[in-house]
Lab assay of single mutants.
Amino acid sequence: MALNTPQITPTKKITVRAIGEELPRGDYQRCPQCDMLFSLPEINSHQSAYCPRCQAKIRDGRDWSLTRLAAMAFTMLLLMPFAWGEPLLHIWLLGIRIDANVMQGIWQMTKQGDAITGSMVFFCVIGAPLILVTSIAYLWFGNRLGMNLRPVLLMLERLKEWVMLDIYLVGIGVASIKVQDYAHIQAGVGLFSFVALVILTTVTLSHLNVEELWERFYPQRPATRRDEKLRVCLGCHFTGYPDQRGRCPRCHIPLRLRRRHSLQKCWAALLASIVLLLPANLLPISIIYLNGGRQEDTILSGIMSLASSNIAVAGIVFIASILVPFTKVIVMFTLLLSIHFKCQQGLRTRILLLRMVTWIGRWSMLDLFVISLTMSLINRDQILAFTMGPAAFYFGAAVILTILAVEWLDSRLLWDAHESGNARFDD
């Protein structure tokens, strides 16, 4: 018995066209964080690309023209004298008006014999932002004059995390709450300039795509075929072959399989920071003279006294001054041990922890910024005066060393310790 099946006739004509040209192939790229070699397709503007294995951002879609970056830099340069030299806060102490600005706080630190601690604050609040705007201006002028731009481009990517104007702005709020127990506070004209400078700096850093600047100024022929001998440069993120001198053909720094002496430098910085954190938390970090009496505060006791007036601000200072430094030390110690013992479990967790400490590390400088600003506000000789204690130097040095330890660690070593050939990683 035959089955009668109805015929289905399409209502619209289906047209099949042959592909007349070869589909576009992607360029081969190595991930600078996990060293995976993959094919990167062509990316349009405002599109980002991520590593298929570790999800690290390979290409950032946010990109401004150099002219727009230069305009932002010149605007920031105009704001800087007002943000640093004009009063941020006014207080009335014992019937006398006192003005506080950024430069005055750094000068008070240096004047009291601790120039190293003052230079830490100076670099993060004044030096690094000033280098940022002058570097962008150098790129703008240098591109037109045919100057060598490689050193500036190499420095810009590392400079971003040292620009800490946003953290200093939080420190202004913390210092205001600490001082309000002794005097009446009012915002100064410099505060508005400083807030504007923070906003412009944040926007500029978020749109400063150094890798795209490398592509514009020093374009290189990408690798179009897969080759395990391809290496990625950690300076400019170019994937290719080393030249005859073993250097990256684009930025001219040595092109090595792994960062040289990464573990040794990381261990040295980490152990030194552990040693410095002990006096930083045991010795007094601030000293207040009130009517001839002397009151010393460690980091913890200062947080407890701050909690009596504002528990939320005390929580912020606790996280930045105690929780973050010790968390960074514990995480980095764990990561280094996992590399030495070739741990194969929990790779995803370790990668996330490394990215976390990379982002939060700079916030530990908050305590030094609060001390710097408070020193310029309260300084009335023996009637009422505020000065920093010996722990300030140890704390600042420990924070900087932990930042350097994270920067010096080559994250690809975590993958080397893991089993080879993993296309995915999980716990």
Rank of each mutant, 00 (worst) to 15 (best):
N4W: 04
P24Y: 09
V170E: 02
F74C: 08
L154P: 03
R294H: 06
R260T: 07
A320C: 15
L373D: 06
Q345T: 13
N310C: 05
A405C: 11
F395A: 00
D35H: 06
S262W: 04
N310L: 05
A280Y: 02
E296P: 07
I322P: 03
S301Y: 08
F425T: 13
P129I: 11
F74V: 07
L368N: 09
Q244G: 13
I274G: 15
V121Q: 09
E157K: 15
I287L: 11
I172Y: 02
L197Q: 03
C266W: 01
V232R: 12
F122K: 10
W408C: 04
W140A: 14
D99T: 08
S420F: 10
G171Y: 00
V313D: 01
I287N: 08
A18M: 07
R259W: 15
A175K: 01
K160R: 14
S206T: 14
D381Y: 09
C124F: 15
R260Q: 07
V170N: 03
L145N: 05
C34D: 01
L77I: 07
D99C: 07
F217P: 11
L306Q: 00
S39Y: 11
H46Y: 10
S305E: 12
A196L: 13
V102S: 05
P129C: 10
G61S: 13
E22H: 11
K342T: 11
M80E: 04
R68V: 02
H237N: 12
V121S: 05
I400C: 10
A314F: 09
W363I: 01
L368Y: 03
S39P: 04
L77Q: 06
Y218V: 06
H237W: 12
T358P: 04
F341H: 08
L145T: 10
L373F: 02
S420W: 09
V133G: 03
G235Q: 02
G293W: 07
V163D: 03
M164E: 05
I319M: 14
F38T: 05
R97A: 03
V179D: 05
P219V: 14
A100Q: 02
A137L: 08
L66Q: 04
I136M: 11
F217G: 15
D227Y: 14
Q112D: 07
I287D: 04
C251W: 00
R259L: 12
V406F: 10
Q180V: 15
W162E: 01
R355V: 15
Q220V: 13
S321T: 08
T327Q: 09
S119V: 02
Y241A: 12
S193C: 04
F333H: 09
W359M: 13
F192T: 12
V179L: 01
M80K: 04
I288H: 00
F38L: 08
A269L: 03
T9C: 06
C233Q: 00
L79K: 00
R250T: 12
M375V: 10
S45V: 07
R226D: 14
L132A: 10
G61E: 07
Q220I: 12
V195G: 10
C34A: 00
E161T: 12
G113K: 14
R25A: 08
W214L: 15
G105E: 01
L66D: 12
K229T: 13
V370F: 10
L384N: 01
M147G: 04
L347Q: 14
A385N: 07
G293N: 08
L255W: 15
F82L: 07
L88D: 02
V152K: 01
V102M: 10
W214H: 15
V121L: 08
I339F: 10
V189T: 15
A268K: 01
R144E: 10
L366Q: 04
P249G: 10
T334G: 12
S135F: 03
I126E: 03
I116P: 12
L353N: 09
G173N: 02
P52L: 06
R221E: 14
E296W: 10
R30K: 08
A397S: 13
I58Y: 05
F238W: 13
L3W: 07
M36G: 09
V125S: 14
I288C: 01
I199K: 06
L230K: 12
A398I: 05
L257F: 14
G188E: 13
Q344Y: 14
V324E: 01
I316D: 01
D60E: 10
D114G: 04
L353Y: 10
L230P: 12
S301K: 07
R245S: 10
N148L: 03
F123Y: 07
L200Q: 15
R216F: 12
A175G: 05
M76W: 05
E211G: 12
G127E: 05
I288S: 01
A392K: 02
V399M: 06
G20T: 06
W214V: 15
R256D: 13
L409K: 05
S308G: 14
R260W: 09
Y289T: 06
Y218C: 08
R216V: 11
M1W: 00
F393A: 11
L282H: 11
R250E: 05
M80F: 05
M365H: 04
R25Y: 07
S308H: 13
N209Q: 05
L66P: 06
I172S: 09
I131V: 11
L347R: 07
I19P: 09
R412A: 01
I403R: 03
L306M: 09
R30P: 04
W267F: 12
A137Q: 07
R256T: 12
L139K: 03
